[in-house]
Design a protein around this nucleic acid. Sequence first.
DNA 1: CGAGACCGGGTAACTAGCCT
DNA 2: AGGCTAGTTACCCGGTCTCG
Length: 415
Amino acid sequence: MTQTFAEVMERLGAPPPAFWENDLEMGLEHFFARSRRDGFMDEWVSRRTGRQVNVLCMNLGLDGAGSVRSKKDSLRSCDDELLPYLLVDQFAKYKSKIATIDFAKGVLADDVLETCRKNEEDFDTTALLFAIYHNSWSDLRLVFHLDKIHKSGFARMKLKDMVRRPRRNFEEFLQPETVKEILDAFDKAKGDGRTSEFKNVVIHNGHHLVFIRRAERPDLVLRAGGVVHGYRPEWIILDFADGAKRVNISSVSVSIPLEIANRLASGYFGRSCEYENESKVTYAKQLERFLDILRKQKTGELLLVEVVVLNSPLEGSPKIKITDPDSHPIGDAIGHFEKAVGGILSEIENIESIKVYYRKKRVSLIFEKVEGADDEYVVRYSDHRLNAMERRSFEDHLRDVHGIPVLSTEKRFKR
DNA sequence: CGAGACCGGGTAACTAGCCT
DNA sequence: AGGCTAGTTACCCGGTCTCG
């Protein structure tokens, strides 16, 4: 008797197909048939790392003693029990390591964590996800969501007007039914025939993260038998902080997530509320001082590795870029250029962007001129280059060491 | 000889510039 | 103004190398 995939999963107490396909966005169409091919499972088991094998043995209650090879042999006889782990392995692809480790540290027992540890700071993420799956499979959905906050940039926004904090706190307000109602009302008002799907509210580091999936632009997929028309999904993450007085927004579209955030805030505060892009002023003098320090820096936390300058002192005043792709500091090179040709960093207005080297990553900074003010700028940086923890320490570093408030290059507008 | 470290290529996310 | 393309960068996978 042959069982369907859904039946096999049910017999194992594993998640149903809809969980994998809809919640984790994994394509299952050919997975089951492929996994049943001769030798497929054997080959998959062979490719497991020692750490993954150890976690699998723990999860399946197999003898954890002996060589990795002998444990792989006993795994090969398990068959169906391994099926969900094939999917977890597939799920682990392209998931942020930092998101997985961070989450695992919160839910896994110490000895399990140690089994997955590669060295002081590194873990086998697939092994961690095997353990997380076994511990509580619905957590994979959380990992799927948390993964997103490390990979995408966020627009920093704050409430336009001062509002009194309501009696009940924001957390109580953010009930799924309430959020769904507000999303429905928004979709109706928008009238573009697309629906906003409420996916999750997660409390993370004191922030309230609201995850929404919405159809964005029309798209199509090719399948055997023809084309299927639909929409490309977009993930909207509203990261509320400070009792909803501030929100960080990650999304593809520009105005829709802002409107949704406005509606949620209006619902919570009980009056019409709007968020606006946060802007923090830095004066030209501060930036000049910052650049002076930066270009002298030969080693340290923050190194200058690229400058792009408009109206250069070269003939015809073209745009120039001085960059070191290997991320060695370019302070001396700039000094050499200025001595030989002329000044380039003295006019902040002419600086299109710079790149600094921070925690082994190249981070762009732009100095955005404040409309109508002569020497006022908003300093913005490409936050998606850094993960969520690194962003915080980068912002702290620039504020504490250089007195410069930095914001993300991401912004959201009403249309 | 097998398990784990190392490295090259691929993938994803974002930016800037061009075109409609 | 919006969409598409090419360029940039980090991270991840999988094959190869190395060490016990």
